[in-house]
Amino acid sequence: MRFINNPIEILFEIVKERYPDTDCDIIIGMQMTDGKETLGCTLFPDDPNERVVIEIHPTLSLENATEILAHELAHVIAGKEADHNEHWNAIFAELHVVFQEKLINRFEQYNLV
């Protein structure tokens, strides 16, 4: 069994190819640990031996969950201090452009267009 155009898997491929040292845990859950009513968040631990955690709200559509995951992965890649600065924005934009390219290629490869 294969899921040919899984957007989450495509996003993971992009991050692994372009930012192979990216490492974090991803949790889908109702309550965001940061205490805010958000649809996604990235938690950077104070202890450097602990892992960064991304949380995604489970009620999101697949399209929105992919977009928010890309947003949060850009935070992990850019680092804790980046917030939404130019460096973070460039990474997020890159993920978005490459994602669109890969998705189109996947559709063409399997004649899904």
Rank of each mutant, 00 (worst) to 15 (best):
M1L: 00
M1R: 00
R2N: 08
R2C: 01
I4S: 00
I4A: 06
I4F: 00
I4M: 04
N5S: 07
N6I: 05
P7G: 08
P7E: 10
P7H: 04
P7N: 11
P7Q: 04
I8R: 13
E9N: 14
I10F: 09
I10A: 00
I10L: 04
L11H: 15
F12M: 13
F12A: 07
F12I: 08
E13H: 01
E13R: 04
E13Y: 04
I14R: 04
I14T: 12
K16H: 02
K16R: 14
K16Q: 13
E17R: 15
Y19W: 14
Y19D: 03
P20E: 07
D21W: 07
D21C: 00
T22E: 13
T22L: 03
T22W: 06
D23I: 12
D23Q: 11
D23G: 04
C24T: 06
C24M: 01
D25A: 04
D25F: 15
D25P: 03
D25Q: 13
I26E: 12
I26N: 05
I27G: 01
G29S: 12
G29M: 03
G29L: 02
G29I: 11
M30N: 13
M30S: 09
Q31W: 08
Q31N: 14
Q31H: 15
Q31S: 15
Q31K: 15
M32A: 09
M32E: 09
M32T: 08
M32K: 08
M32Q: 13
M32N: 03
T33W: 04
T33V: 02
T33E: 07
D34V: 01
D34G: 02
D34A: 08
E37T: 14
E37D: 04
